[in-house]
Computed example of a mutant assay.
Amino acid sequence: MAEHDTETPFSDLVRTRRAELGLSLRALAERCIDPETGATPITKGWIERLEKGEPVLTPRLSELRAMAAGLQLPLRRLQDEAAVQFLGMQRQAEWSGDSTVRAVVARMEELTPEERADLAQMAELYAAQQVARRETSKGS
């Protein structure tokens, strides 16, 4: 069983995302199908214990793939949060106090190089627009 301190990013992500999707514990478990094997390795009880902060076995890759499918999230994001919670690993980079930046980065891996370049350009334009807006509001 996994021992963890106070940081529970994997549990928090699962709980939050399940709520966003409006899924019951059972419905989420039924959606957690490993796309590579077709197996359904996640049980309602495991999700319930995870969300309550009770001890659970550290998820294996096949279970993380199934959770990614069920939660409609990138596998990389689940792997990162599980590594922090269950293995005590440090995040590769802590760009944000919340999970928004990690979520965007995880999604970036799904894009083609051209799509990533387009998104980076949009981010630069948006950031410049926001800086200009703040500067304008300061002068008012």
Rank of each mutant, 00 (worst) to 15 (best):
residue 3 E to K: 01
residue 17 R to A: 09
residue 89 M to T: 03
residue 138 K to S: 11
residue 19 A to I: 06
residue 59 P to V: 00
residue 24 S to A: 06
residue 105 V to H: 04
residue 122 M to I: 06
residue 77 R to W: 14
residue 130 Q to H: 08
residue 82 A to R: 01
residue 37 T to P: 05
residue 33 I to T: 12
residue 6 T to E: 13
residue 103 A to P: 03
residue 56 V to T: 14
residue 136 T to L: 09
residue 28 L to Q: 02
residue 44 K to I: 00
residue 23 L to A: 03
residue 19 A to K: 14
residue 62 S to L: 06
residue 11 S to R: 03
residue 116 R to S: 10
residue 39 A to W: 02
residue 47 I to L: 15
residue 121 Q to L: 12
residue 97 G to P: 05
residue 131 V to E: 06
residue 61 L to N: 13
residue 10 F to N: 02
residue 24 S to E: 10
residue 16 T to C: 08
residue 23 L to M: 11
residue 34 D to E: 04
residue 86 F to V: 01
residue 136 T to N: 07
residue 105 V to L: 15
residue 116 R to A: 12
residue 18 R to M: 12
residue 16 T to M: 10
residue 118 D to S: 11
residue 109 E to L: 11
residue 119 L to F: 14
residue 140 S to Q: 10
residue 13 L to A: 06
residue 136 T to A: 11
residue 109 E to R: 14
residue 103 A to K: 12
residue 126 Y to A: 14
residue 76 R to E: 10
residue 85 Q to S: 07
residue 8 T to A: 13
residue 77 R to M: 15
residue 25 L to T: 01
residue 138 K to I: 08
residue 85 Q to A: 06
residue 129 Q to T: 07
residue 85 Q to L: 08
residue 30 E to I: 09
residue 124 E to W: 11
residue 43 T to S: 15
residue 36 E to G: 03
residue 33 I to M: 03
residue 74 P to M: 12
residue 26 R to G: 03
residue 42 I to L: 05
residue 99 S to M: 14
residue 58 T to D: 08
residue 37 T to R: 02
residue 97 G to T: 08
residue 18 R to I: 09
residue 86 F to D: 00
residue 11 S to Y: 01
residue 96 S to P: 02
residue 116 R to D: 06
residue 2 A to W: 01
residue 49 R to F: 06
residue 38 G to F: 05
residue 68 A to I: 03
residue 112 T to A: 04
residue 92 Q to W: 10
residue 5 D to F: 02
residue 88 G to S: 13
residue 18 R to W: 14
residue 20 E to W: 10
residue 100 T to S: 13
residue 41 P to R: 00
residue 70 G to V: 02
residue 80 D to K: 13
residue 96 S to D: 15
residue 21 L to C: 08
residue 84 V to P: 01
residue 86 F to H: 14
residue 22 G to M: 11
residue 135 E to H: 02
residue 25 L to M: 08
residue 37 T to D: 11
residue 110 E to A: 15
residue 25 L to P: 00
residue 110 E to L: 15
residue 119 L to E: 13
residue 112 T to R: 10
residue 86 F to E: 01
residue 98 D to C: 11
residue 14 V to M: 10
residue 136 T to W: 09
residue 44 K to V: 01
residue 68 A to F: 04
residue 14 V to N: 01
residue 69 A to T: 09
residue 82 A to S: 11
residue 34 D to G: 03
residue 83 A to P: 01
residue 48 E to Q: 14
residue 58 T to L: 04
